[in-house]
Amino acid sequence: MGVVCLNFKFFSVFAKHARTSLTENSMGKNTLTKADNPAKTQDEIIAGLADKWRDKKGSLIMALHDVQSHYGYVPRDVARKLAHQLDVPLARIYEVITFYNYFKLTPPGKHRISVCLGTACYLKGAPELIEEIESLLGIKEGQTTSDGMFQLDVVRCLGCCGLAPVMTVNEEDGDKVYAKLSRKQVAEIIAKYSKPGAIEKK
């Protein structure tokens, strides 16, 4: 039992979350493919998205997932164009974006630090980690540093409670997981990601 679960826990955490988007293939199923070619213009991308989802009932959230996986957030002009293409009021789109935690309205920082605040992590000291990061970077949860280097997110259970407390930092090829953390290690990790001298303790 233990063998199994631990393995799966690790699998999913270490799985590479390459920027992916959901596309519909001819058989009517979803397959994960690399995000659209960045060389395309914004209009083309949105038109492509709209074509993909227009005839599907109730697919607004899926279309927004595609937008976010391409841009990292939902830019206002993209939302406006999407509204036009899908023929839904802009208010409907914003209604959805602001309801769900997953959708962001501001560009993400270069390094996105996600501290897990599930119950196991909470019991094992995640609030202290958050406090430490906040004081090190001078930002509050959900904010990005002024140089755009770091973004601090407090996330719901990452699903690897055996490793609590846990945080992840995104790197080029996926999220790096830091497990069983202490206050001290957090400072070392942040120092690793920042340019020398970029952080000063407040």
């Binding site: 009517g28 979803n30 109730g58 607004l60 959230i61 899926m62 997932h65 769900y100 935690n101 997953y102």
Partner: peptide, 24 residues
Amino acid sequence: EIRLGAGAFVCGEETALIESIEGK
């Protein structure tokens, strides 16, 4: 078919989940 959630705990409640699948 697959529909993705978007980080809302309340969507585990069945009627909220229905609304979410409908794209609301």
